[in-house]
Design a protein around this nucleic acid. Structure first.
Lengths: 212, 212
DNA sequence: TAGATTGTTAATCGATTAACAATC
DNA sequence: TAGATTGTTAATCGATTAACAATC
């Protein structure tokens, strides 16, 4: 299938998906790129260009059917299936993600939570036992884990990620302040959430307000 | 002071800051754009262009002094001061952020955590009492709060954000799946962390692996 | 001084926007 | 059919990379 989709486009897809989901909730049946562009504050041209990377989902003179487009983008994003995930690192963030029921609703099933700390192992998060890190290999092999969520301390993260890849993990959602992509084989999918980086762009704006 | 800095550049600054911090920890005294470019996997040209948006921090024939550049970027990012923050929404994520001590180390001081749920109000997170949402106005007025962290449910978020702005909040770190920027006055700083959006770019890559 | 490396200008590349013919 | 709106090509804009003179 055709040419490479640019990263900028891919990163916009979840936002389209979110807006279409809202429209669907509000029983909106059809929408034109122009109307959507006003709501989302992007150009209609960009919406049409973005969508046409994946196919012609609209109809001249009519616009887009909201429900159809929503589901099509969902398919493009891989949301037409469930994902088995594990969480590595049962600290504050790991526990919070484990408890976050929105993930489950979206088809992300937390099959295990792992840590090395004896004080955490054995505790239960939403009915999921925190297991010792040493058991992770078995879990990955036996349970067909799709995604590993990393909330490990910075300096252990590279080792953990390398292990996981050895055990067969193909996709990592990484919360540690490390650029894993640079140390893992390039076919491994890595998506980073760098919370402090995000917060720093906010403090940048505090320190450098727009002058108008 | 001079021309507008583009968003793409601003978003790269925390990453530079992170790498320089690592170098500093490892007692590296000087670094050239070329060497840094290899470590970070960006072009040396881009590093020099980015930095020169803010001034000439290097020296021909020598490169950049790591400690100096680290602190200069810190200042640009507004990290040369403390920030008083409050967290609104004491659910899993709000609590995790409240407990996250790395923020404190970076100068973000959690002055209060707020929720509407009677079962949460009165509980204590790292010595900080969860207060009823109705007390938020006083807190903002009396304590000079710089940043509000929003981990509220989707459908309450716009109302909460609007209130906060009325009470004087200028900067919002938003975890709710809503584009606040579109509903708030444009001088309010908003930085979003859309966790599900991020996860969806990962599932996109699961569903559409690179062919080589 | 000679070598190294920046700061900065110019060239290239990619992403966004505009325009419009195709078509429902 | 006439009006609306897409899909798509062409034009513009901005961001990245290359090149090199300035200079430490």
């Amino acid at each position: 299938m055709s040419k490479k989709i640019s990263n900028t486009v891919i990163k916009r897809l979840p936002r389209y998906y979110r807006y279409l989901g809202d429209l669907l909730e509000n029983d909106v049946v059809r929408i034109s790129s122009n109307e959507l562009s006003k709501r989302m504050d992007v150009t209609a041209s960009q919406i049409r260009q973005d969508l046409n990377n994946f196919g012609g989902f609209g109809q001249q003179g009519y616009g887009y059917n909201v429900e159809y487009l929503y589901h099509e983008i969902g398919k493009i994003l891989g949301l037409d299936r469930k994902y088995q995930v594990i969480i590595i690192g049962a600290g504050n963030l790991g526990q919070a993600l484990g408890k976050y029921s929105d993930f489950e609703r979206r088809g992300f099933i937390v099959k295990g939570i792992f840590d090395v700390s004896p004080s955490l192992v054995g505790q239960s998060i939403r009915g999921i036992n925190i297991q010792d890190y040493s058991e992770i290999k078995d879990m990955i092999k036996s349970q067909n884990i799709d995604i590993a969520i990393l909330t490990t301390p910075k300096h252990q993260t590279i080792q953990v990620a390398t292990d996981l890849v050895t055990y067969g993990i193909k996709s990592i959602w990484n919360f540690a302040p490390i650029d894993l992509k640079l140390v893992l084989p390039k076919e491994i999918n890595v998506e980073n959430v760098h919370l402090l980086d995000s917060l720093m762009t906010l403090t940048y704006r505090c320190a450098n307000p727009e002058k108008d």
